[in-house]
C-alpha cells in the first residue's frame, strides 16, 4: 500500500491515511513482540517505549488509541503480513462519516454494458460472472420494457449479511456490504437470501487464477477472486478511498450513474462529473428503490425510465458458452 503521494485527497482518504498509520503501529507492535532480542520495543496497550539500543533518530507516530509516541527508527519494521491485516481492519471500519449511495437513471440507459466490462475487468470476473448486470425488464404487459443495471443494493437491512454463519460478509459503517474471501466458507446461504440475485460464486478456478496467485488479496476489490467463495459488487470500495468514483460509474458513456455520499446530500454523475443534490434529484425525478416492500432498505435508488434519451432496443441476451 502506498500513501506517499499526499497530493490532494478528499477527507476520506485522509482518514484512511490516519488509519493506515494506526495499523502500521499495530503491526509494528506485533513485529516488535516477535523480535526476542530483549532490547525490542515493549508493546503494552498500544504504547511503545524506546529501549537501550537506539539509533538516536526517532519518529513520532500515532498509536491505535490515538496517542502520539516517539519510536526509535531502529524499531520501525514493516510487518510481513501488513497488507493483509491492514486490509482487514481498514475494510471493516469503512470510510468514516460516509454513507455511500448510488442513483441509477434508467432514462439514460441504452444497455451499452460498458459498466459491466469495466467491472469485470477490475474485479477479474469471468464473462458470465456479474457484480453488475443489465437486465431487460417489463413490469406489466402494457408498460414499456426497459434496461436496468442491477448491482448489489448494499441494503441497510441486508438479508445476506444476517444469515452469514461466520461474519465473512458484513455491513460497514459507510453502508457498503463487503465480503472477506479469506473467511467465506462457501455455504452460499447469502446467495439464497439475497432477493436481488446480486451475489455470485467462484464455482471453478477464478479467471487468470495462475496469473494472480501471488497477488496480495484486497478485500475492498475482492481481488484476487478466490475459488469456492462468494463475490459481489462492493461499490468499488478501493476507488472510494482514493476519492474516485466506482469503476462502473465512471465507465458509463451515457450518464446513467450518480454516486455520492448521503451524509453530504450529494451525488456526482460518472459521465458528466456534475455534482447535484441527492434529495432534489430523487424528488424531482421520482426516485424509487427496488422491491422496497421487502424492507431491505437498499442504498441504490433508481430514476424511472421517463423521457428516455435512447429508443429501447430489444436485446435477445445471447449467453456465453456453458461453464
Amino acid at each position: 500500500m502506498e500513501y506517499n503521494n499526499n497530493s490532494h485527497l478528499p477527507d476520506g482518504a485522509e482518514n484512511q491515511k490516519a488509519a493506515s498509520r494506526r495499523n502500521f503501529l499495530k503491526n509494528l507492535g506485533l513485529a516488535g513482540v516477535g523480535v526476542a532480542t530483549g532490547a525490542a520495543a515493549l508493546y503494552s496497550g498500544g504504547i511503545f517505549e524506546a529501549k537501550k539500543e537506539v539509533s538516536g533518530d526517532s519518529k513520532v507516530l500515532l498509536t491505535q488509541d490515538g496517542k502520539l509516541v516517539r519510536v526509535d527508527s531502529l524499531e520501525i519494521k514493516a510487518h510481513e503480513k501488513s497488507g493483509e491485516e491492514l486490509s482487514e481492519s481498514l475494510c471493516r471500519g469503512g470510510i468514516p462519516g460516509r454513507r455511500w449511495v448510488m442513483v441509477t437513471d434508467l432514462s439514460k440507459c441504452r444497455n451499452a454494458r460498458r459498466c459491466i466490462a469495466a467491472c469485470q475487468e477490475a474485479h477479474q470476473l469471468r464473462p458470465e460472472q456479474y457484480h453488475l448486470n443489465t437486465l431487460q425488464i417489463q413490469d406489466t404487459p402494457a408498460t414499456a420494457p426497459y434496461h436496468i443495471p442491477k448491482n448489489c443494493q448494499h441494503c441497510d437491512n441486508p438479508p445476506c449479511v444476517a444469515v452469514c454463519p461466520v461474519d465473512a460478509t458484513y455491513k460497514r459503517p459507510d453502508g457498503i456490504v463487503l465480503i472477506e474471501n479469506d473467511r467465506c466458507i462457501g455455504c452460499r446461504f447469502c446467495m439464497a437470501a439475497c432477493p436481488y440475485s446480486a451475489r455470485i460464486f467462484n464455482w471453478l478456478e477464478p479467471r487468470d487464477a495462475a496469473k494472480y496467485q501471488d497477488k496480495e488479496y484486497n478485500a475492498e476489490l475482492n481481488v484476487p477472486q478466490k475459488l469456492g467463495t462468494v463475490s459481489k459488487c462492493l461499490f468499488s470500495a478501493d476507488r472510494l478511498r482514493e476519492g474516485e468514483l466506482p469503476y462502473c460509474v465512471s465507465a458509463c458513456p451515457n450518464g446513467v450513474y450518480y454516486f455520492g455520499d448521503e451524509n453530504e446530500d450529494s451525488v456526482t454523475n460518472g459521465t458528466t462529473r456534475e455534482t447535484v443534490r441527492l434529495s432534489k434529484l430523487l424528488r424531482d425525478n421520482g426516485g424509487y428503490q427496488l422491491m422496497p416492500e421487502l424492507g431491505t432498505k437498499p442504498r441504490v435508488y433508481y430514476l424511472p425510465p421517463k423521457n428516455r434519451l435512447f429508443p429501447f432496443e430489444n436485446i435477445n441476451p445471447e449467453t456465453p458458452e456453458k461453464v
Binding site: 477527507d11 476519492g243 453530504e264 450529494s266 456534475e274
Partner: peptide, 8 residues
C-alpha cells in the same frame, strides 16, 4: 460547494 467527488 465542495463534496466528496467534486464541486456542486
Amino acid at each position: 460547494v465542495k463534496r466528496y467527488f467534486g464541486n456542486m
